[in-house]
Design a binder for these strands. Structure first.
Lengths: 223, 223
DNA sequence: GACTTTAGTCGCTAAAAGTGACTAATTCGC
DNA sequence: GCGAATTAGTCACTTTTAGCGACTAAAGTC
């Protein structure tokens, strides 16, 4: 086996845990043990025999008391940027949690993603990469649902997409696309939210369907 | 500084260098120094002070004699799967090269991606992740052009997209979309390829344009 | 009970994508 | 030399999809 007992460990697993708080995304931070930095992303040193995914899940569970509803590796970060653990490289994960059910353990706090306090440059880069990953995954996986509770109104779902996309959507178009995708199922519950007509609650329940066969899309922006 | 002199190093940078060879993608492999595995992806141990991207670029340059036309980190791989360098984790990169200009150094060979000989399980996973990354980047970045020489016919471009997407495209639709995207510019050269009408050569030259503002797309396949 | 607010739907229009047929320019066989 | 075959490039029509405003529905407010 390897020498893991020395003070200098080679790599860490860092977590960008994200939730939707009000009209903003929020990131979970914890007090840093180092001196220079006050706040830091949660991070762990993988134990002997532990996989990267395993260490990420363990860290997330320890920070939140529950596993994230979705998690994915972002990549490895190194490049001489400092890390609170003084490790060579750090493997970052992004995880999503619905805000309603997420009650962080003591010492962990949600920060609006636009107001993240100074963290180490390496972790700063991870937060930026995480938002990019979330945006990129939006039309590849049903991650918007992972930020919502088990049942939700269609307006809440649309607001979540608007938050993630950073732009307004037209109600009728949004619902037409949603209908065509067979992703949600109505429940028999309704929610009355102050004034206005009560909204029906839906749950995420994808049904089998073919992938829409679309042609090539050249709608990327070249750098 | 760290102790890097011991035989056991902590991490490597591995390269999935891809080109288009005929009607298939091909991956660059080299003879493995280990005993069990015969072939391996090119990999490097980052030198002191070298960034991950830097090590990847160095490795690619050493293997190909030129830098890839596009490269991106795929992620970190560990998880107890064996690696020829016996490192804890490996950071994988995918890189693209046009086949015409790519002449690998001695000891490196292109293998059709469907006929990759047995490599270490960890590197096997990297090759699979690389193909997924290429597919995913297709409509986010102009990577198809990175597999073609500087000038090309529109039929060649379409064939490249068909290869990457794994399906046939309709000629008129493809060209209509391409026209709308302002991505290519005609040269005044034509190429006569045996029989048939000669084709005009184009070059990749994106012009400024707005991103097509499309709505939400729910056309992912849920797992 | 009129007004406001939010939910949900309808139908028209505009834009985009699928498709087959057409013209153009070359090589090949004879 | 000339017609068939082959590949390039374009056109026009149809179908699908998205944008958008206006409409009805059901609640609270005053």
């Amino acid at each position: 086996m390897r020498d893991r007992s020395s003070r200098t460990v080679s790599y860490s697993v860092d977590l960008v845990l994200v939730t939707a708080m009000g009209n903003d995304l929020a990131v979970l931070l914890t007090r840093s043990t180092g001196e220079r930095e006050r706040w830091a992303l949660p991070w762990r040193i993988p134990q002997a025999g532990e996989t990267l995914d395993g260490a990420a899940n363990r860290g997330a569970h320890e920070a939140l008391g529950e596993p994230p509803s979705w998690m994915e590796q972002i990549g490895a970060f190194g490049d001489a940027k400092r890390h609170p653990g003084d490790v060579d490289i750090s493997v970052a994960y992004v995880g999503l949690v619905p805000h309603e059910t997420a009650s962080p353990r003591a010492g962990y706090t949600w920060f609006p993603i636009t107001e993240v306090p100074p963290v180490s440059p390496r972790q700063r880069a991870m937060v930026e990469a995480a938002t990019k990953t979330i945006q990129a995954r939006l039309d590849q996986a049903p991650i918007a649902f992972r930020l919502l509770p088990a049942t939700f109104t269609l307006s809440e779902l649309q607001q979540m997409y608007e938050l993630l996309l950073g732009k307004r959507l037209h109600k009728a178009s949004f619902r037409r696309a949603l209908q065509a995708a067979w992703l949600v199922e109505p429940t028999d519950e309704w929610r009355s939210e102050g004034r206005g007509r009560p909204a029906q609650l839906f749950r995420y329940l994808p049904k089998k369907r073919r992938r829409a066969q679309r042609g090539v899309r050249f709608d990327f922006l070249f750098p």
